[in-house]
Design a binder for these strands. Structure first.
Length: 268
DNA sequence: CGACCCCTGCGC
DNA sequence: GCGCAGGGGTCG
């Protein structure tokens, strides 16, 4: 569900827990927690007794950084939510983890489809080690390097988190539309100008979406329960068969990189 | 590289 | 009832 703008909005919504101490941590499903470096002591991995120093993010990966150097990674998958509330909020079906903090705060990790999860790490760098540069700050040179001389489509490359971290299906299509590049274009055929335009579009599309609080299509919610409004900015995603906002040509749709892809056959 | 799998819920 | 959904991993 969430791409970089949604995860960044979640990070912003988690600020109330920064500086708070975790009194009690509970894990309701063991298989939702994995350890990057064994062995695994659950209360320890869940940061019980620690104070939250800050929340980091690279791409779609969040990390709760605690005192003493422990790090707990959170990946929201398609339907994951982090909910800041009170300790007495009743547990619901798809809640997998719960933290009681001081100051009357509580945190819940909920994820109906269970594509997300928690990961215990020894450091932030360990948590983020397999990710490419964060998409909010992607440079044309890095994008070109990550794509290489590959025959795969530029869209598939944008979805590859080792090339750049944070772009998913919505913002890949939106960035390609703004840069006027066809999603099926092979990486090896991209010009330097196109890499420049695409890198710029990615940064712009993502930062605008953050300022709107992320896109709420179905179940995405900020930690305070509010919806994002960035879906108002979508120019091609979800608009297959409708007219292009630039030229009125009917937007096309096909599967590229295993995902539904929408583009304007004239502008792109 | 693409194909297929993981899982639940929703709208048609 | 079916197909689809913002995520990723593992195969061949």
């Amino acid at each position: 569900m969430p791409e970089l703008p949604e995860v960044e909005s979640v990070r912003n919504g988690l600020q109330p827990i920064v500086g708070r101490r975790i009194i009690r941590a509970s894990l309701f499903r063991r298989d939702m927690l994995e350890s990057l470096s064994a062995p695994l002591n659950i209360p320890r991995a869940m940061l019980q007794g620690r104070r939250v120093e800050r929340i980091d993010r690279v791409g779609k990966q969040l990390g709760i950084i605690a005192d003493g150097g422990s790090v707990l990674g959170i990946h929201l998958g398609m339907t994951g939510q982090m909910i800041v509330s009170h300790p007495d909020l009743p547990r619901s079906t798809h809640d997998h983890a719960h933290w009681v903090l001081d100051d009357g705060l509580a945190l819940t990790f909920r994820d109906p489809r269970r594509f997300g999860g928690l990961r215990a790490a020894h450091s932030a760098s360990e948590l983020f080690e397999n990710l490419g540069p964060d998409a909010l700050e992607i440079r044309a040179k890095e994008l070109k390097l990550g794509c290489g001389n590959s025959t795969r489509s530029i869209k598939a490359a944008l979805l590859d988190q080792r090339v750049l971290a944070g772009v998913g299906n919505i913002y890949a299509d939106e960035s390609l539309f703004r840069a006027r590049i066809r999603p099926s274009k092979e990486c090896r055929c991209m010009t330097d100008d196109q890499f420049r335009a695409l890198a710029g579009s990615i940064r712009k599309v993502l930062s605008e979406a953050i300022s709107y609080g992320g896109s709420t299509l179905r179940d995405y919610r900020k930690p305070d329960g509010e919806r994002g409004e960035a879906q108002r900015l979508h120019r091609v995603y979800g608009r297959a068969g409708m007219p292009c906002i630039n030229c009125q040509t009917t937007l096309k749709s096909d599967t590229i990189g295993q995902r539904t892809t929408v583009w304007c056959p004239r502008c792109q």
